[in-house]
């Protein structure tokens, strides 16, 4: 019985993440269109797209790694989602959030990218491989300030568990005010994590023709879209848990995640694309300085 409830909870979590993530993508398309003085597709367009793509039959494939790439990608998005607390108080969707800590999650988030990278590599499309080398290089860039921010919080409160950090914020107030430098570093790292402009060097529509996903159509693309939106929600929830003390109910969670989501989105709307080395150096500039300052701050305090 217990197992059944937990399984149902996990499925419910994933469905919520899918719906919310897709909605945010739709709003993103709408806002982007309005900024560019277009009408834009309706907000529910992404649901229609995903449904259409997933219901398609697979007619061609390039081999087993390419075939399984979406499955690897889903491990990161769904798996990570199950290991972070969605709501505070743990009455809703506790899932597995007591069974993994921050450092584990940092690494677990990478498995999908690796599987996806190998899948894209097997298609033999040179653009895919170029996109992946760019993506991995950029990851090395933004992980440095991101890890610095996380380590700063870990040493400030002597815990590596997300639930503990949320509980601590109940007493001391939001971490974005307790350690503002760490928050800033993490937010700047988030720009790279979401891969919107100016860090959209992986897909780079102009020169790489959407990069890694260029050989994936139909069911593959549908699953990748779903995975992408689940992962977006996962990352936003993680940020809310870490810096805004988690949400007590789903409405607050939506407001907080959407506010955070606006940052990379709006920043991207007004920025042209960086070259890869510029992107890496961007993250190793001010974000890393802020991260170092956050470390010093949390040691001193």
């Amino acid at each position: 019985m217990d197992f059944l409830i937990k399984t149902l909870g996990a499925i419910a979590t994933i469905i919520v993440a899918f719906i919310v993530g897709m909605l945010y993508m739709g709003i993103n398309r709408k806002i982007t269109a309005r900024v560019q003085n277009r009408v834009g597709p309706p907000v529910w367009q992404n649901y229609i797209d995903a449904l259409k793509l997933v219901s398609k039959k697979t007619s061609v494939h390039h081999g087993v790694m390419q075939h399984l790439a979406p499955a690897f990608l889903m491990i990161s998005s769904m798996g990570t989602l199950l290991f972070i607390p969605i709501l505070r108080g743990q009455s809703w969707f506790p899932n597995l959030s007591y069974h993994g800590d921050l450092i584990f999650i940092l690494y677990f988030m990478v498995l999908g990218s690796l599987g996806m990278a190998l899948g894209a590599g097997q298609t033999g499309n040179p653009n895919a491989a170029i996109g992946i080398t760019r993506g991995l290089s950029q990851m090395v860039g933004f992980e440095i300030p991101w890890v610095m921010a996380l380590v700063a919080m870990m040493i400030q409160y002597h815990t590596t568990s997300i639930s503990d950090l949320m509980a601590i914020q109940q007493q001391h107030g939001w971490l974005m005010f307790q350690n503002p430098l760490a928050f800033l570093a993490a937010i700047l790292a988030m720009l790279g994590m979401f891969r919107y402009s100016p860090f959209d060097i992986v897909g780079a529509p102009a020169e790489l023709a959407s990069g890694p996903i260029s050989e994936f159509g139909g069911k593959y693309l549908g699953l990748m879209m779903s995975s992408g939106s689940i992962f977006a929600f996962t990352k936003l929830t993680l940020y809310v848990d870490l810096f805004m003390g988690g949400a007590s109910n789903i409405v607050v969670l939506l407001i907080e995640t959407f506010t955070l989501y606006l940052i990379p989105m709006l920043y991207g709307l007004v920025s042209p694309r960086y070259r890869t080395e510029q992107a890496i150096r961007y993250f190793w500039g001010w974000p890393t300085v802020l991260g170092l300052a956050a470390l010093v701050y949390s040691v001193v305090i």
């Binding site: 007619s59 494939h61 399984l68």
Partner: peptide
């Protein structure tokens, strides 16, 4: 968890897999 998620999605992918055919890595867009 990893195995469950992976296998679930793999089942979705392998559903009617026989209809797909292998195309060479030269046959790309």
């Amino acid at each position: 968890t990893t195995i469950t998620v992976f296998v679930t999605i793999a089942i979705v992918l392998f559903y009617r897999w026989k209809n797909g055919r292998y195309v060479s890595t030269k046959d790309i867009s």
